[in-house]
């Protein structure tokens, strides 16, 4: 088992003829993901590494039965692309694009509310279920099938954690990058129940960072509903207030959203919080009694 995506997931790549889109569509396909379609308006009939290109997501759904979209469309057109995927009936939308204006995402989030569709991202590395489907930009080879679910606001920091888990022989089930933007589609609290229910996942690594209160909300949820061990690292204990640390969402504003506050909330909820990111893997190992 796994969560969100598996070997049967049928993927359409929006923005497939762009530099990023074509490169990563090819990489995902090489990993074994069923990449069945691509979309670039005006380029129907072309192929990218044997993947047929359509003008619209609706056409792609009709012809290929794709159920998940992976988006590489540039920021000015990305809100439109997400809504197009939702309107075409795609059930899972994974948006990699970084730099979408927040107020665009405000409208997108509102428009998706109450509909039978899940958005992951934007500004995220994507989702991978190890050895089944890689739907994103993460390097597939660092992953190893195992027992740990990973959910994270960061990209390369997630690779760091995954690398530790794989090296220690623990391995991962599914890794979900929820992205570094202040308004996103899926939060920690949406992913945690999926891992809690997944029989193969024995522990969860949750990687947070400064800004917002997603980690505090997660702490509340974990305390009430999660029985599996959760191990967490929060990046940015040295970050100064009022400065945006790369990610649009990584900013301490009005004294809120500090790493210390988040760590405190998580610890109070029984989460094992590691202060040193180099110790994530070992902490999971200890939590699982291995």
């Amino acid at each position: 088992m796994s969560i969100l995506v598996n070997k049967n997931t049928r993927v359409v790549v929006q923005g497939i003829t762009g530099k990023e889109g074509s490169f990563h569509a090819t990489q995902c396909k090489a990993y074994g993901t069923k990449v069945v379609a691509g979309v670039t308006p005006g380029k129907a009939g072309q192929e990218v590494e044997g993947i047929p290109v359509f003008n619209t997501v609706a056409d792609a759904v009709k012809k290929t039965d794709c159920d998940t979209s992976l988006i590489f469309v540039p920021p000015p057109f990305c809100a439109d692309a997400i809504l197009e995927a939702a309107d075409a009936g795609v059930k899972l939308i994974i948006c990699i694009t970084e730099g979408i204006p927040v107020n665009d995402m405000v409208k997108v989030k509102r428009a998706l509310h109450g509909r039978d569709v899940r958005l992951i991202g934007p500004n995220c590395p994507g989702v991978i279920t190890v050895d089944e489907a890689k739907i994103g930009i993460m390097p597939g080879f660092i992953h190893k099938r195992g027992v740990v679910g990973v959910v994270s606001r960061s990209g390369t920091l997630t690779y760091e954690a995954v690398h530790q888990l794989s090296t220690l022989g623990l391995g991962e089930t599914t890794c979900v990058g929820i992205g570094g933007d202040p308004v996103n589609g899926t939060g920690f609290v949406d992913v945690l129940p999926l891992f809690e229910k997944d029989p193969e996942t024995q522990a969860v690594v949750m990687i947070g960072e400064i800004g917002g209160d997603a980690e505090e909300k997660a702490a509340e949820y974990i305390q009430k509903h999660v029985k599996k061990p959760v191990i967490s690292f929060i990046a940015g204990i040295t970050a100064p207030p009022g400065r945006r640390m790369g990610h649009a969402g990584a900013i301490i504003s009005g004294g809120k959203g500090t790493a210390t506050e988040k760590m405190k909330a998580l610890e109070a909820a029984g989460v094992r919080v590691v202060k040193n990111p180099a110790e994530i893997g070992h902490a999971v190992k200890a939590a699982l009694g291995r």
Binding site: S154, T156, L157, A235, A239, A250, A259
Partner: peptide
């Protein structure tokens, strides 16, 4: 990467 950059700062401390 932004997350790893922050984590690197934290490790230095």
């Amino acid at each position: 990467g932004a997350g790893l950059a922050m984590a690197t700062m934290d490790v230095i401390k």
